[in-house]
Design a protein around this nucleic acid. Structure first.
Lengths: 203, 203
DNA sequence: TCATAACGAGACTATATGGTCTCGTTTATG
DNA sequence: CATAAACGAGACCATATAGTCTCGTTATGA
């Protein structure tokens, strides 16, 4: 059955039609589930939004939970950003660049909605939490640690990286997750600069 | 209709029976909604768990959303802890006491589940978020600011208070909300001491 | 071209839900 | 003691949901 060329273990032969439907379904799932949550959103709504028969959804993902996992996997499978080839500029600037990219990515409405949906199901489906964590907070922590290793000990680098991440999000993250405020880039930048001053020192 | 004695605007005359049923319903709602979320939990389940007719639930709270709001209000309406009458001990110890109480309260399973349920509905019912925020993060920030005002300027006190809160939760809070770890008091205490060292200085 | 795989639409089942209504019983109160 | 309020149980309704099945159509790939 499987093509000899296929390096993946995926048994489904990829075809143009099949792939296009799959992405259409994932697009629909993103719209529906991020707006209404995994529990609140229905498979019917996803199928309708995707312009696809309900059966097609089940052919592709097997069940609603399968669809949810497929969506989170797709949204978290961002191709690992290549590490800065040579830290252009000084340490502070490298850190600031990383923190800004991280923070701005995390507070995007889409990310916030994904986070909320995942948190809601954290007890029932912790694997979703792991996908999100590994794609977001874990990556930034590792990247910061790497950058900081050029000046600090391994242990110090790890500690400072973690604190930078926390201080970067700051109070804003509470307010965002709870729906009390909207993303504010300027505020994030101020927060990041303050964090750098406190944790690294004067730049 | 209303009694002349009543100082509240609440039109319902309190009676022993009525009050006992109300708390029974809220107990049931806590069990059901914190386990299954506001969307996932059903009014039928709440009524059954409370040993109460469904109609009684609707007599008391009007609708499912009303019940949800009632529950969150009840859980967040903790009687304001009286401020430490005279900061016994030094500044660091006062701060540490506050931070420990806050952190340990926030990572209790019940609080985490409430936070998750509220976050899930943040878009649809932001008033829930406000209730939670005002009862938790906002209070600790104010209390810390007050304590810090004895040594720092108003602005510095506010900034340090906010940073202390963030560093106290640290990475652990991400892991807890996403369902990747369990509450660990020792880890929290270590985190708090580190935060105090970084933000306030050697103790 | 032709067999096959994937498709859209929609009927269909079983179940669950929010919410209303009734009715006979228990509890409070004047 | 008697009236009224609050109750439990459960029937009831309209709607929604996850998931299955069929059937006629469209696209793929040899």
């Amino acid at each position: 059955m499987g093509s000899l060329m296929t390096t993946k273990t995926d048994p489904s032969p990829s075809s143009r039609l099949r792939d296009s439907k799959r992405t259409a379904i994932l697009d629909g799932a993103r719209e529906v589930f991020l707006r209404e949550g995994f529990t609140g959103g229905s498979v019917d709504a996803v199928a309708a939004k995707a312009g696809v028969g309900k059966q097609t959804v089940y052919r592709h993902f097997g069940s609603k939970d399968g669809l949810v996992i497929g969506l989170v996997r797709a949204m978290c499978d961002v191709p690992e950003l290549e590490a800065d080839a040579g830290t252009t500029g000084d340490l502070i600037n490298a850190l600031r660049r990383e923190l800004r990219a991280f923070a701005e990515g995390l507070v995007r409405p889409e990310s916030m909605q994904l986070y909320r949906a995942i948190v809601a199901e954290a007890e029932r489906m912790p694997e979703l939490g792991k996908l999100f964590y590994d794609a977001g907070p874990k990556v930034i922590r590792q990247r910061l640690t790497e950058i900081l290793s050029s000046r600090f000990s391994e242990r110090e680098a790890r500690e400072k990286a973690e604190m930078l991440v926390q201080l970067t999000l700051g109070e804003a993250y509470f307010e965002l997750t709870l729906g009390l405020a909207e993303a504010d880039t300027k505020r994030l930048h101020r927060q990041i600069d303050k964090a750098l001053r406190v944790i690294i020192g004067e730049g």
